[in-house]
Every structure is written in C-alpha cells, then in structure tokens.
Amino acid sequence: MPFITPDNGSLTVFNLFDTTSPDAQKILLDTMEGIIDGANYPGWRSSTLHGGIDQPCAANYIQWRSVADLQERYEGENFKHNTVPHFSELTTSVHLLKTEVVSTRLHAALEHIEIGPHRDDFTVIVIMGVDPSDQARLVELFTEPDEWMQEVPGFRSNSILRGLDGDYVVNYAQWDDRESYERFHKLPEEDRPAHSRAMRAAARPLLTSRSSNTYEVVYSRSAADQPAGDR
C-alpha cells in the first residue's frame, strides 16, 4: 500500500472530481476503480481512490515518478479521446493538482503514514489557495513543529503538500473519526495553545481561497502489486 513521506521522490497528483449525487458518485468510483485496475503506465507508482462523505465527489491520490511521466500519460491519444470525454459525462468539474510532499506529522503511536482501504481513517483534504509570492511563507507556517497535536484526541497524521503551480497548498489529514476531527476543527481559538493561535493568525490573511471535504478510502493499488512481467 502507498506511504506518504517527503523523501520518496514521488510527484503526488490529486485528481479531484465533483459530481451531482451519491448515485453518481458510486458510478464515478466504480469507473475509476476499473481504470486503476488497468494502470501500468511508465512512471506510475500508486493510486488511492477516496469517496466523498460530506459532498458527492471523488479524490484520487496518485504517486508518479516524475512530471514527465504524468505528461506522457495525459498526452496519450486514448486518454484525450476516450478517458477525458467519459469523465466529462460523469462529473461536474475535474481538477488536477500537481504537488510534492514537503512535511508530515504523525502521532507517536504510528511508525509511518499509510493510506488504503484496509484502514479506517477519516480523511480530510483541504485545498488552500495562495498568491505565489506567499506560498513559501504559508508552507513554512504549516510545517512548524507542533507537539500539541500529539495530545489532540483522534489525531493520526497530516501531510503538507506544496502545489507545483505555486498558487495552492494542500493539507491531507487522517483522523480516528468525524467526532474527533469536528471537535478539533471547531475548537475555540482561546482554547488553543498560543503558538497555534499565532500560526493560524499569520496564515489566515495569506489565503486567497479555502475548500475542503471529508473522505473514506475505497480502493488502492500500486505498481508493487503487479507481477514483475506486467510492469
């Protein structure tokens, strides 16, 4: 199963798909699972499919060897003439975010950050828009050491990913359950430690947009799962 770490050299791509209803989401997820099952593209390392909980949507967390490998896949005739038109029928919008993992934080009880349907993570993906001139500062703020998170009930991990286009930062977080996440998310500012309040106050003016959704992982496959002759 895939692991999230800043030092594995992977390009991380978020393919985000919005759709209209839970039924449409199921069709979308089934279609994407079939595509992931057939993945054997040069440079492809893994795909982990997430189904939206609060809003009908899907997120595919994909690890590639390089941007060049990604471009080769998306410039292929089959992708342009078959895959893209098919997804335009199933979705209301599609977003592709090219990122790199710059920092991870995990609970002391965990040895690494793993993603897959064999786990029961309550996953939150937050996309934060930022002016390119402020991206480095926003990343710096979100990657500051924060031992307090070790004491937050239900926290498992979070990973900060820098958008290669320069105008966004992604926070990918894992929690025990919705209740734990909501308790943390809605915690009054006065109940947070001083360093956390200062970080949030400094980060807030840098954001040009913020969107988030909650997810469960429904399917995952990696190149390591394939027989050697099929790679």
Rank of each mutant, 00 (worst) to 15 (best):
L207E: 04
F79H: 05
D165S: 15
D23L: 10
M1P: 02
E190L: 10
E179C: 07
E111T: 10
L28Q: 09
A68M: 07
L110R: 12
G34I: 03
V67Q: 15
S196G: 06
L28M: 05
D54G: 10
L207M: 15
V126A: 15
Y215W: 13
E100L: 05
I127Q: 09
V101M: 08
D23R: 06
H112I: 08
S211N: 09
Q55H: 12
D37M: 15
P153L: 14
K186E: 11
G34S: 11
S159D: 06
D120Q: 14
Y41D: 08
Y41N: 13
P193G: 07
M128K: 08
T83S: 10
R204N: 15
V102M: 11
E147T: 06
W64R: 13
E189F: 12
D54E: 06
G43R: 12
D69F: 06
D225G: 05
V102A: 06
Q174T: 08
G76C: 09
D120C: 09
Y219P: 12
R221H: 11
W64D: 01
P193Y: 03
A202E: 15
E33L: 12
S103M: 06
R137F: 04
V124L: 14
T123K: 04
S222T: 15
E182A: 14
T48P: 02
P132A: 09
S103A: 15
F3Y: 15
A228F: 11
V218Y: 08
R231S: 01
L207A: 03
S88R: 08
S66F: 08
P153R: 05
S103Q: 07
H185A: 14
T12I: 15
K186W: 09
R119K: 13
M1A: 13
F79V: 14
S103T: 07
V169P: 03
T214F: 10
D134N: 12
N213M: 10
H95L: 04
E89I: 03
R65T: 04
S21P: 09
T48W: 02
V170I: 15
Y219G: 02
F142D: 04
L11N: 04
N82M: 10
E77D: 13
E140M: 01
V152F: 12
G163A: 14
N171C: 10
S212P: 00
T208V: 11
A198W: 02
P56W: 09
K26S: 08
Q71P: 00
Q63G: 04
Q55G: 02
P42C: 09
R156T: 04
F184T: 00
E179T: 14
D54P: 00
D230L: 13
T31K: 07
L187F: 00
D7Y: 12
A202P: 07
I113Q: 01
S133E: 15
P85K: 04
S88E: 13
P205Q: 13
L90F: 00
V124C: 12
H195A: 11
E182R: 07
T214K: 05
L49T: 07
K26P: 06
N40D: 05
S93R: 07
V130T: 10
F79K: 00
Q63V: 02
Y41A: 13
F122W: 05
S103F: 04
L106F: 12
R221G: 02
A24I: 05
A59T: 11
I125V: 15
T104C: 08
A203F: 10
